[in-house]
Amino acid sequence: MAGSRGMIDPAIFEQIQANIDDDSQLRDEVRNILQKRERQGRMTLSVLSRAHSVPAAERTVPRTSHIIATLNLQIVKEALKPARSSIDEQIQTISELGAMVSKYPYYKYNHLWTRHTQETIRSLIFGVWLGVYEPEQGTLLTIKEVGSSMNVPVDVKDRDVFHITTEEYLLALTDLIEELARLAVNSVTLGDFQRPLQISKFVKELHAGFQILNMKNDVLRRKSDGIKYSVKKIEDVVYDLSLRNLIPRNAS
């Protein structure tokens, strides 16, 4: 103490400044990479939104037939194919992000990109549900499958690494449900009377899952409270169809 008579060890503020600079630089880098992800995300959404519309030529085909519905599905799947590469690009960007932030505590900066990963998960699970990747459609990617598709760990407890959080996955599911409610309505317009039934069953199963979660007052609660409106919307579509005997006989 005799050596330095000042009150303040200059190293204190040098270190604080270094910390602020380091922080600013990382934020800059993260922001750049997220802008790239946003561009890719818009691309994906514009392709996936084709699921709600049908090529103009198809509108002349008579509706109500189950065969037409299946045919429609094929056409939609064809139209959605470009979504694959764009989702893959998003996944690539997310993994670049993961590499960039790997040396920082995960939760220190997680708030910067959590919305972006959530959107990418949403596009991925919606794409898979629509059958963009596999011939089979209507399937849900579990959080583990999302993790392996994106090559990002999930359910991380014991190490501090870049990963997908449960909240991000669940929020993506709430977005998916909203999208499917819209799709149920639009499928009817497209003459596909079977898909609303499939959506109804699927969304109810998800809703049942959400109902066992104990929510606190946070964004997840707000979003999951909204699920019931989507369920209702889908039920109304199914009701309208069944009232008019429009439900395909071989549907479950």
Partner: peptide, 27 residues
């Protein structure tokens, strides 16, 4: 409060095991 008759048991949804994991984690 699920309205379908076949939905009041544990096989209510194939996603239940995953959601049970989520519930424990969130709790």
């Amino acid at each position: 409060d699920l309205d379908e008759k076949d939905m009041d048991t544990s096989d209510v949804s194939p996603f239940m095991p995953m959601f049970q994991g989520f519930r424990d984690e969130l709790d």
